[in-house]
């Protein structure tokens, strides 16, 4: 009898650690009955244990994702670095004119299909929107070509009327030039442009990505610019072999430049995606570890408190019996 009294007393002393705080609001009699029915003697650690298990599982998943991203990054990094040699001669010949003022701009936004890769998709979207604002105006037209599921989802919210093409599932097979050139060909055939502005994340290191804009001009604009002089003025000093005209050469060059720049941009972006995913997963597994530590501490404290309560119960019960003798 004395034991039962003390048990109830002990329960009332520890209402803050109770696993079910609602029980404290209910009348003490009914809650006692309920707990008596369930056979719960002390504070339940079940909830904390379940939580710990799920955090541990999440940590396992994020660790695995980090490993996968690291191995994919290694595969794509070399290719991305090698592909830089493709656009460099074009920039040397035609220059890069990010500030050129033209009537029809097309912003090609490159993003990833999958999430959980930090802020790389939102940065390209931000840069694309800034380009849209910079280049729009009276008698000027800006359209978007969106590569990747994530940027499509973000752009759909506020600039869906300006999207002219969207491309997804590019990353299913390992990226290759044939694939990107078919894509570039499709883009060239389906949009009218004076300048194509390709927005992507340039891979710098595993933790650093620079949002970058590469500009590809249409042949007519290149010709116009080279007549005016300036950066493209030196183009006339080149000799043209064979029977082709300058216009033909420039058209071929502009098309090939676009596919080469796209190839590099797609690779750089894939590389940045993997790097960003790696660091994001690294920090989330670290966070999960910290959370697990905190939960373990709570769990152990609760366990200890219940052990202490039990000891007190036994000792005071024994001493009560001693006193009754």
């Amino acid at each position: 009898m004395a034991m039962a009294v003390f048990r109830r007393e002990g329960r009332r002393l520890l209402p803050s650690i109770a696993a079910r705080p609602i029980a404290a609001i209910r009348s003490p009699l009914s809650s006692d009955q309920e707990e008596g029915l369930l056979g719960v003697r002390s504070i339940s650690t079940q909830v904390v244990r379940n939580r710990m298990k799920s955090v541990k599982n999440i940590q396992k998943i994020t660790k695995a994702m980090k490993m996968v991203a690291a191995s994919k990054l290694r595969a794509v990094q070399g290719r991305a670095e090698n592909s830089r040699g493709l656009w460099q001669p074009f920039t040397a010949l035609l220059g890069d004119n990010p500030s050129i003022d033209v009537k029809k701009s097309v912003v090609v936004t490159l993003s990833s299909d999958k999430g959980l890769c930090g802020g790389i998709n939102s940065t390209v979207v931000k840069v694309s929107r800034a380009l849209y604002k910079l280049n729009s105006g009276p008698e000027k037209d800006v359209k978007f070509v969106i590569v990747g599921e994530k940027a499509k989802a973000i752009m759909f919210r506020d600039s869906k009327n300006d999207i002219s093409l969207s491309v997804t599932e590019l990353n299913k097979n390992p990226l290759n030039y044939a694939q990107v050139s078919v894509l570039a060909d499709d883009i060239l055939k389906n949009v009218e442009f004076d300048a194509l502005r390709i927005v992507y994340n340039k891979f710098h290191s595993v933790v650093a990505f620079l949002p970058t804009v590469a500009t590809v001009l249409s042949p007519e604009i290149i010709e116009k610019e080279s007549e005016v002089g300036g950066k493209l003025g030196e183009l006339d000093s080149y000799e043209i072999e064979g029977g082709e005209t300058k216009g033909e050469i420039l058209q071929n060059l502009a098309e090939f430049q676009f596919s080469c720049v796209m190839f590099n941009a797609v690779l750089e972006n894939a590389c940045s995606e993997m790097g960003a995913r790696m660091s994001a997963m690294d920090s989330s597994s670290r966070n999960a570890g910290e959370m697990l530590d905190r939960l373990t501490l709570t769990y152990n404290r609760t366990r200890q408190a219940s052990i202490t309560t039990e000891l007190i119960e036994i000792i005071s019960g024994a001493s009560a019996l001693e006193a009754a003798k």
């Binding site: 869906k160 999207i163 599932e169 299913k172 097979n173 694939q179 078919v182 894509l183 389906n190």
Partner: peptide, 28 residues
């Protein structure tokens, strides 16, 4: 076999994808 082409492309008009996107999937 290295030159696999796989992506899906869709044209947009009036704020939504115009037709079911075309899936390209072949080996060059």
């Amino acid at each position: 076999n290295r030159e696999k082409v796989h992506f899906s492309i869709s044209k947009w008009a009036g704020g939504k994808p115009e037709k079911p996107s075309m899936l390209l999937d072949f080996v060059l």
